[in-house]
């Protein structure tokens, strides 16, 4: 088991320097959290320094050259050779293969190191296997940032609701879709106009298919389902309908009854409901959040209904979830050698 003294610096290696990675770096450099960066890699370069990499220099280099280190040092090498306590894997999601992230995570766990990831691919596809591997090695695998950005929903489910039976989960899990639907409702925009606006503001990718057809929300639902019920649900088990065929007239029709339309993920195991679909929802319902916000309702037997909302994406918001995982691992495992 990987233990360290609370007085010691916690050593972290970071894979991925996109929006989330840069958010993590900026928090590490601006807050004195007792964490040092001993390795970093992007898709084209890497660096290792057991004494700690100077983060302002690293960010400067990344900004000027597009590289975070030496092109001869690969992400594989950082994962295999850098001295770290926690591997922070925040490379882009590949929802089909889960690679190369899954390989990095396996290797880090194999080395007896903890892993924190924001990458949905490995968790949606290989959660059970990776969780077993982590348990065998006596280390932690945390993935708060994979679902609902800044909302600490996984932490809540794994740590704070012990003894509760979660009976159902309802969530707005994709900020891009929620932004589009909000704008269609509030400004009377067509689907295409709202999508173009979301793109110009950076809320939607150039190819928005993954978001607007519901795949992203469905992957998050898979992760939540496996965290709560551990039933081995896969993406193909979720019935998915996107928002790409919605009309503005449909939203007007919903408004006639003081309602609107939102893309909602639902899991109700007792009714065998596992789906993501646009639904008619009262305008005053807690899940009718605006813009790119995310929201989740958990129905539990002891605590009753619990509601969470917050920013579902963004560099610092997602970094908040990653940093929260790192700190919670330190608190749980700190104890000296």
């Amino acid at each position: 088991m990987n233990l360290w003294c609370s007085e010691m610096n916690l050593r972290v290696a970071l894979i991925g320097t996109g929006a989330v990675g840069r958010g993590v770096l900026s928090v590490l450099s601006s807050k004195n959290l007792g964490i040092i960066l001993t390795g970093v890699a992007d898709s084209r370069s890497g660096q290792i320094n057991p004494d700690g990499i100077r983060i302002p220099d690293l960010l400067h280099q990344k900004e000027n050259t597009g590289l975070c280190g030496d092109p001869s040092i690969s992400a594989d090498r950082v994962v295999n050779e850098a001295p770290y306590d926690i591997l922070v894997e925040v490379s882009p999601t590949d929802a089909e293969s889960g690679e190369p992230a899954t390989g990095y995570i396996r290797k880090a766990l194999d080395r007896g190191c903890h892993v924190v990831t924001s990458n949905k691919g490995p968790i949606a596809l290989k959660y059970h296997e990776l969780e077993c591997q982590a348990r065998e090695r006596g280390v932690a695998l945390r993935f708060e940032a994979t679902v609902a950005g800044a909302i600490p929903i996984i932490h809540m489910l794994q740590d704070s609701l012990g003894g509760n039976e979660v009976q159902a989960l309802y969530g707005v899990l994709n900020g891009t879709c929620n932004y589009i639907l909000t704008r269609m409702a509030e400004e009377g925009l067509s689907y295409k106009q709202a999508l173009d606006e979301a793109r110009s503001l950076g809320y939607a990718e150039t190819d928005p298919t993954y978001d607007v057809r519901g795949t992203d929300a469905a992957i998050k639902l898979v992760i939540l389902a496996n965290t709560i019920w551990k039933t081995g649900i896969r993406l193909r088990d979720i019935h998915v309908t996107g928002i790409d065929l919605l009309t503005e007239e449909a939203i007007r029709l919903a408004e006639e009854q003081d309602a609107t339309i939102r893309l909602i993920g639902e899991i109700v195991p007792s009714k065998n409901i596992y789906r993501v679909s646009p639904l008619i929802i009262p305008r005053v319902h807690p899940l009718t959040v605006k813009g790119s916000l995310n929201a989740v309702i958990l129905r539990t037997d002891l605590a009753g209904d619990l509601f969470f909302s917050g920013k579902g994406a963004g560099s610092l918001e997602t970094a908040s979830a990653v940093i929260g995982d790192i700190i919670s691992i330190r608190e749980r495992y700190a104890g000296g050698y």
Binding site: E266, S277, I280, H285, L287
Partner: peptide, 9 residues
């Protein structure tokens, strides 16, 4: 046809 149902809560 795309059918949009109400959220049954």
């Amino acid at each position: 046809i795309l059918m949009i149902e109400p959220l049954v809560f």
